[in-house]
């Protein structure tokens, strides 16, 4: 790995990163502030009277909105957080290889004494750093501001959210990086990766009406993300860890392999 390239990679994205981190901190703080006001009680009854398909649309999953986990999953972590962080991660991933090839800046880097494998591994390390920052910007404010509003997550739950949230987004980013290592256009790479995720999301939604639509089954990255359960129960199933871990590992290793062998101009 090259620290010079890692620093430059993150510097290139400093403005976007600052906006995402700032927005996530504000969003997380807003959610812990809102929870005592609207979580539970009559509002929970109103929400739970909605059709299950609509609740599924907001990522409510199997947890009750009346619970703290249900509130955070439906209002924030189940859909909006996923959209915000996945978009940030896919933009990073699409630019990591394909975007730089299309812009021509890859030529500048690869005309220097830098091996392709080292460059690709550094871009993967950049993704890990990027995702960790976004996960921290999400979960640290909940942990820090929470006690002020009577929201007390155990340290174990906090670390579980951090770790699984990071792994989930690494799996998403891995798909994006793999697409980016294959295609020449960053837009095409991010569209294809986003398309895969949208298909998973739609499949999860439609599965409420038809079992036939649930063709992803247990390998659906979207439906496997159940932060409400983690908040309520303090645990996550082993299958989810394996799923995110394998998808992240395989896609990220594959992107290094593909990039090392492709034309970059």
């Amino acid at each position: 790995m090259s620290w010079t390239i890692l620093r430059a990679t993150l510097q290139q994205r400093r403005t976007a990163l600052a906006w995402y981190v700032g927005s996530l901190v504000a969003y997380s703080w807003m959610m812990v502030w809102f929870y005592p006001k609207i979580g539970g009680g009559e509002y929970a009854k109103l929400i739970e009277s909605m059709p299950p398909e609509m609740l599924q649309l907001f990522g409510s999953g199997d947890v009750s909105f009346a619970s703290m986990g249900g509130f955070f999953q439906t209002e924030y972590l189940g859909l909006m957080w996923m959209l915000i962080v996945a978009s940030a991660v896919l933009i990073y991933a699409s630019h990591a290889f394909a975007g730089e090839i299309a812009d021509g800046t890859m030529e500048l880097v690869l005309s220097q004494p830098v091996s392709r494998v080292k460059l690709a591994i550094t871009r993967v390390a950049g993704l890990v750093a990027y995702v960790l920052l976004l996960a921290a910007a999400t979960f640290v404010p909940i942990q820090v501001f929470g006690p002020t509003y009577d929201i007390n997550l155990s340290a174990e739950t906090f670390w579980l959210l951090m770790a699984l949230g990071t792994l989930f987004m690494l799996a998403v980013g891995g798909i994006g990086m793999l697409a980016s290592s294959v295609f020449r256009s960053g837009g095409k790479a991010s569209s294809i990766a986003a398309g895969v995720l949208v298909v998973m999301w739609v499949s999860d939604l439609v599965a409420n009406f038809s079992d036939v639509a649930d063709f992803f089954g247990n390998v659906n990255l979207i439906s496997s993300w159940q932060p409400g359960k983690i908040i309520n129960d303090g645990t996550a199933s082993a299958e989810v860890w394996w799923l995110y871990g394998i998808v992240a590992l395989v896609s990220l290793v594959a992107c290094v392999f593909v990039f090392a062998r492709r034309d970059v101009a």
Binding site: G104, T105, E107, L108, P113, V114
Partner: peptide, 22 residues
């Protein structure tokens, strides 16, 4: 494709300059 050591001895100038705009 991965010949980093060779590129240490080369200086490359392109006529279509692509650099980081910011």
């Amino acid at each position: 494709l991965d010949g980093a050591n060779l590129r240490r001895r080369i200086g490359y100038v392109s006529g279509e300059v692509k650099a980081y705009d910011k």
